[in-house]
Design a protein around this nucleic acid. Structure first.
Length: 830
RNA sequence: GGGCGGGUGGCGGAACUGGCAGACGCGCGGGACUUAGGAUCCCGUGCCGAAAGGCGUGAGGGUUCGACCCCCUCCCCGCCCACCA
């Protein structure tokens, strides 16, 4: 055994051994309970960074642990290779994305192997491979048949940087989520998934996801954005048109003093009276020119113009003016609102600005009455009791809403309705590096899906990538020109490609049978492995990938491919790895630390331990060279410890039972450590405290010099536990030390698949306990008593202490609280 | 504005179900070994205090024999959403 810990000299060796033995292949234990551990697959547009090292280390520790617990573990990896970022990066350095991506994948694979990740590499998938994306085609065709895919014409989000349409989920503050360029509206045709038909299911399904972080389910809930309210038609005075408004507060309708349309509302032009036309047109034109963020941002001042038209409130028969204003969004609700300035803050501000009447119609359930509109300083937006609302007066808001909705429905001028924030997922991309959309346009037959037996539609290698906005595939005649599958006449292929999020929506299922040429994945295997047991990834995917992923799984479930409607049981969202300065690692701050460089310096085990020890998985961490030094030092100490105790390796196991004194304490520590690490992993992935328990065990071992068989056996037991418990976290050094201990007898075994140790419950409880002694809740001493001591014995021992006596002397003891094994508290007078 | 997290030593973080706050690591101080130490080992390390002791989990209040933990009021930080009618 080498005296010095040199990770470089052992890590590669064990990686090769594991690979040769195939220990990480899934399906090797058909009798065992299966576990599917998945980390979000990487997007190889650049090199592997610390964030990747963190996710995969977390997943890997878990997968390795589950394997040792006896499970049949599926822990696959692949590459999310298609998509805009890869294409943009390739354009930037003038290379073909296929070439660049392939290079990046080679480097990722090497780095991952160097970190010792227990992946089943036989199952690796690359989404850019036609054998993968042909199943995107397959799903597209199936979904087209079912009406889940459709072509629509309309305003779409156009990213001015990526020169393509992007999905709603990819727009952040009017900018592109990827490249931060401005996003503008563009009228264009696009393909979309009818995810909105699944809104109700996707929302309801969240209730069952009890092992997802609440913040993620909340974000999804908000994004789906169910809002229950009412629609009410306001007839335009002197015209045939009706203005349909959406409100969640129909109980306030008697307080409606005007109606507002969005500038883009289709009725705007028709309603405007001739004398108001110039002003209205100027306003609308100005709004169209103003950037959306500026126009509708919360800070933007409310602005509007009167159309000259009036509409009739069907509840009151009253006539109210119709305005156009910047704060009403065309795409939400009906693009028109009934304004109730007394009970909506936006309406209130607008009414004050343009001197419109304010009428109070809701009174608080208890307390002071709300003053009349003229005297209000702000809107009162809480529910209350209706007032001045005709036949609907004196009703609690909720009840008023019900009755008023029913009234509107009965009179056929409205009724209750549900609105969603979620929109359909537009997935057309006017770019090259994506899955071609398998559609052929025929003059006679229109848009014809490519028949299943003619799939895949392969991405032509020679596309000219310009990023100019016109689909690059349109410039490849050999690709575009084809014949209609229905009539055989000349026809043209669709030149748009699919959003990358299509690839990642179902990849986890492809891992089940990655080379299957007849179906997207094997249903029988799906029954065994799905849903995913634990999914690890970044919280930034809360409303993009994770929503599409759930949507797609439901579609697969409907297609009869999966048994369960949800794709994954437990979600773990890991925090960011910041630079040593606490700022996000970035070239800009010059604080990037490359995982490969750290593996070179300290070995994979140290890097892995850092990732797990720094903080619980969900917290952000700062890279710290000092902490890394500390963890390397820990492994060095472990190494030396084993080296110095080689004499114990052969001690007979049974002799440990004879150990006494500090060596019995050591045995207790050993079993408590097994218990702590096991339970920590089971409950909450408490890697950080698990590792700290191993450090404690090591510290205790370091102070002991065993003599004789019994003591040596106790040490042997502790060393064996230490090596075994370390295996999920620092697998290489654990494997090496374990083999050193086991000797040639275990030469053909591997710790990676040895059983996880069990603890002896009898040894996890101490025979002596320290009881804290309190007087009036303040700590005044402690006593050592046998664990089995009775309350009377503990009292006697406590009261025998001089110091305690000092606090009790001359005082009347009113009460004694005794908590077994923990403390005794004397409550005294004065 | 809404939602969700969070606030504990110099730092990262521990703390069972309301029961000895600060495990473990880093850093720091002291010592040993050494030609040397940025290697290694040992000891110490919440704050104030010479000590006795007192004070301490963002602030203030409450419940309790006992509160980082439960309740109320407030402050601050992070993330997500946001003129959503």
């Amino acid at each position: 055994m080498n005296e010095r810990y040199e990770p470089q000299s052992i890590e590669t060796r064990w990686q090769e051994r594991w690979a040769r033995a195939g220990v990480f292949k899934a399906g090797r234990r058909p009798q065992a309970e299966p576990r599917y551990v998945l980390e979000m697959f990487p997007y190889p547009s650049g090199a592997m960074h610390m964030g990747h090292a963190r996710v995969y280390t977390i997943g890997d520790a878990l997968a390795r642990w589950l394997r040792m617990r006896g499970h049949d573990v599926l822990h696959p990896i692949g590459f999310d290779a298609l998509g805009l970022p890869a294409e943009n990066a390739a354009i930037k350095d003038g290379r073909h994305p296929a070439e660049r991506t392939a290079e990046n994948i080679v480097s990722f694979r090497a780095e991952m192997k160097r970190l010792g990740y227990a992946f089943d590499w036989d199952r690796e998938i690359v989404t850019a491979d036609p054998s993968y994306y042909r199943w995107n085609h397959w799903f597209f065709v199936k979904m087209l048949e079912k009406g889940i895919v459709y072509r629509r014409q309309g305003k779409a989000n156009w990213c001015t940087g990526c020169m393509t349409v992007i999905a709603n989920e990819q727009v952040v503050d009017q900018a592109c989520e990827r490249c931060s360029s401005q996003v503008v509206d563009k009228v264009i045709g696009e393909w979309a998934f009818r995810i909105t038909s699944y809104a109700e299911q996707l929302l309801a399904g969240l209730d069952g996801l009890t092992e997802w972080p609440e913040r993620i389910t909340t974000m999804q809930r908000n994004w789906i954005g169910k809002s229950t309210g009412a629609e009410v038609d306001f007839a335009v005075q002197g015209g045939a048109e009706k203005i349909k408004v959406f409100t969640t507060r129909v109980d306030t309708i008697f307080g409606c003093t005007y109606v507002v349309l969005a500038p883009e509302h289709p009725l705007t032009a028709a309603l405007t009276r001739p004398e108001r036309r110039p002003e209205v047109e100027a306003f609308v034109a100005r709004m169209k020119k103003t950037e959306a963020a500026e126009r509708t941002g919360e800070g933007a001042p409310k602005e509007g113009v009167f159309t000259g038209a009036h509409a009739v409130n069907p509840f009151t028969g009253e006539t109210v003016p119709v305005w156009i204003a910047n704060f009403v969004l065309a795409e939400y609700g009906t693009g028109a609102v009934m304004s109730v300035p007394a009970h909506d803050q936006r309406d209130f501000e607008f009414a004050r600005k343009y001197a419109l009447p304010v009428r109070t119609v809701i009174q608080p359930v208890a307390g002071e009455r709300t003053p009349p509109g003229e005297l209000l300083a702000a809107a009162t937006t809480e529910d209350g009791v209706t007032d001045g609302s005709g036949a609907f007066s004196a009703l609690p808001s909720a009840q008023a809403r019900e009755r008023m909705s029913a009234h509107a429905a009965a009179g056929r001028f409205g009724g209750s309705t549900v609105r969603w924030h979620l929109r359909d997922w537009g997935f057309s991309r006017q770019r090259y590096w994506g899955t071609p959309i398998p559609i052929i346009y025929c003059e006679t037959h229109g848009a014809v899906p490519v028949p299943l037996d003619q799939l895949p539609v392969t991405l032509p290698p020679q596309a000219i990538i310009t990023g100019t906005g016109e689909p690059p595939l349109a410039k490849v005649p050999e690709f575009v020109e084809t014949t209609c599958p229905t009539c055989g006449k000349p026809a043209r292929r669709e030149t748009e490609t699919m959003d990358t999020f299509v690839d990642s929506a179902w990849y986890y299922a492809r891992y089940l049978s990655p080379r299957d040429a007849t179906q997207p994945f094997d249903r029988e295997l799906a029954r065994r492995w799905l849903p995913v047991d634990v999914y690890v990834g970044g919280p930034e995917h809360a409303v993009m990938h994770l929503l599409y992923f759930r949507f797609w799984h439901r579609v697969m479930h409907e297609l009869g491919l999966t048994a369960e409607p949800e794709p994954c049981r437990r979600l773990v969202t890991q925090g960011i790895v910041n630079g040593p300065d606490g700022r996000k690692m970035s070239k800009r701050w010059n604080n990037v630390v490359a995982p490969g460089y750290m593996v070179d310096r300290f070995g994979a085990d140290t890097v892995r331990l850092f990732m797990l020890f720094a903080a619980p998985p969900e917290k952000d961490i700062d890279w710290s060279d000092e902490q890394v030094d500390g963890l390397f030092r820990f492994l060095t100490r472990v190494w030396r410890l084993f080296h110095g105790r080689q004499a114990c390796f052969a001690a007979p196991e049974a002799a440990a039972a004879q150990a006494s004194g500090p060596f019995l304490e050591l045995r207790r520590r050993t079993h408590r450590t097994i218990k702590k690490v096991t339970e920590g992993m089971q409950q909450d992935l408490k890697f950080n405290t698990a590792i700290s328990a191993l450090m404690e065990l090591m510290n205790e071992l370091q102070g002991l010099e065993p003599n004789g068989e019994a003591e040596q056996a106790a040490v042997r037991e502790a060393l064996l536990a230490l090596a075994t418990l370390l295996a999920p976290f620092a697998p290489h050094v654990a494997e090496e030390l374990w083999h050193e201990m086991q000797g040639p007898a275990a030469a053909d075994r591997l710790l990676a698949e040895e059983p996880w140790p069990a603890f002896d419950a009898a040894l996890t409880v101490a025979d002596t306990v320290t009881i804290a002694v309190q007087v009036n809740g303040k700590l005044r001493g402690d006593v050592q008593v046998p664990a089995a001591a009775t309350e009377a014995e503990v009292r006697a021992a406590a009261e025998a202490q001089e110091k305690v006596q000092g606090y009790l002397a001359g005082k009347a003891v009113k009460k004694v609280v005794y908590v077994k094994g923990r403390l005794i508290n004397y409550v005294v007078a004065g």
